[in-house]
């Protein structure tokens, strides 16, 4: 009984994508951005999607978010088809997209509605703590560093307790050291909250470091080339032999036409 309840609870958070495709119509003709995409994300999993720029990975994420429509083929979350954006899916964009005229606290509260003031304050405080910014409630975005601003964006995306968090190259604009810190941060948050995560990135290391699975996409049209499971214990060591082997495997997926032009080693 308890087992079946747990199973159905898990199913309720499952994200099923496709099969779907997407064509953009331009003045000069039409471009197929995505073709025959199928993706099953069991609830609670962390999925990384890697691909070179222009492979349609962001478009895929935007379709899941409900910001774009596909040509056909549905996205369902917990069995219900996605029609437009909704609070069950949180989105973190590459830029923090904080409203510059609101304080950190107000920016997080911007995501909340129809709640008593005390409850809003409690949730905002709780999520500020979650991202480690307790002392910055009254700061304005321009007073924050890039990493801090992105932390606020994460708090804002999580404050509604979405079932899925969609991350669209969230750390791409940050410097290398801050990026690594933020990867550890998102890992910690995921381990604490067990929200399903779908991360789009062009950083292979980031994809391996975070994902339960790495989905490799190829471009024109964007298709899923392969899905590689990452069976490494967390926190993952970027310099471990298994990590490096996996990185080589993924790298090879990008350059299958020709052999790697040179030995790829770190």
């Amino acid at each position: 009984m308890a087992a079946s309840a747990a199973a159905s609870a898990a199913r309720a958070d499952d994200l099923l994508v496709g099969p779907l495709s997407k064509t953009f119509t331009l003045k000069t003709g039409s471009v197929q951005a995505l073709s025959d995409i199928r993706l099953d994300v069991p609830g609670g999993r962390f999925i990384s999607i890697v691909g070179s720029s222009g492979c349609g990975k962001s478009t895929l994420l935007r379709i899941i978010a409900g910001l774009e429509t596909s040509d056909g083929g549905a996205v369902t979350l917990g069995g219900r088809p996605v029609a437009g954006p909704g609070l069950d899916r949180g989105v973190i964009f590459q830029e923090h997209r904080l409203l510059p005229w609101l304080t950190v606290e107000q920016n997080i509260a911007f995501a909340l509605k129809n709640l008593p003031k005390a409850e809003i304050a409690r949730r905002v405080r709780e999520h500020l703590e979650l991202v480690g910014l307790d002392g910055f409630a009254n700061a304005h975005p321009h007073q924050l560093s890039g990493g801090m601003a992105q932390r606020v964006a994460i708090a804002r995306a999580l404050v509604n307790r979405p079932r899925v968090l969609l991350l669209d190259e969230p750390f791409g604009a940050l410097d290398a050291l801050t990026r690594i810190q933020m990867q550890q941060e998102i890992l910690r948050i995921w381990q604490a909250q067990r929200t399903t995560m779908v991360l789009v990135t062009h950083d292979i290391d980031e994809a391996i470091f975070l994902g339960d699975e790495v989905v490799v996409m190829s471009s024109r049209p964007g298709t899923i080339k392969t899905v590689l499971p990452v069976r490494l214990p967390r926190p993952r060591d970027r310099s471990s032999p298994d990590f490096i082997t996996l990185r080589k495997d993924i790298h090879r997926e990008f350059f299958t036409a020709a052999e790697l032009p040179f030995a790829y080693e770190i």
Binding site: G66, L67, G84, P85, L99, K113, R156
Partner: peptide
């Protein structure tokens, strides 16, 4: 980008005007 954010967060039109557009 703020318009998109408001869509993702399902912000009501009135609130969108008051907190995003006018400021």
């Amino acid at each position: 980008r703020h318009v998109e954010l408001a869509r993702v967060l399902e912000v009501t039109r009135g609130r969108f005007i008051r907190q995003v557009v006018l400021p």
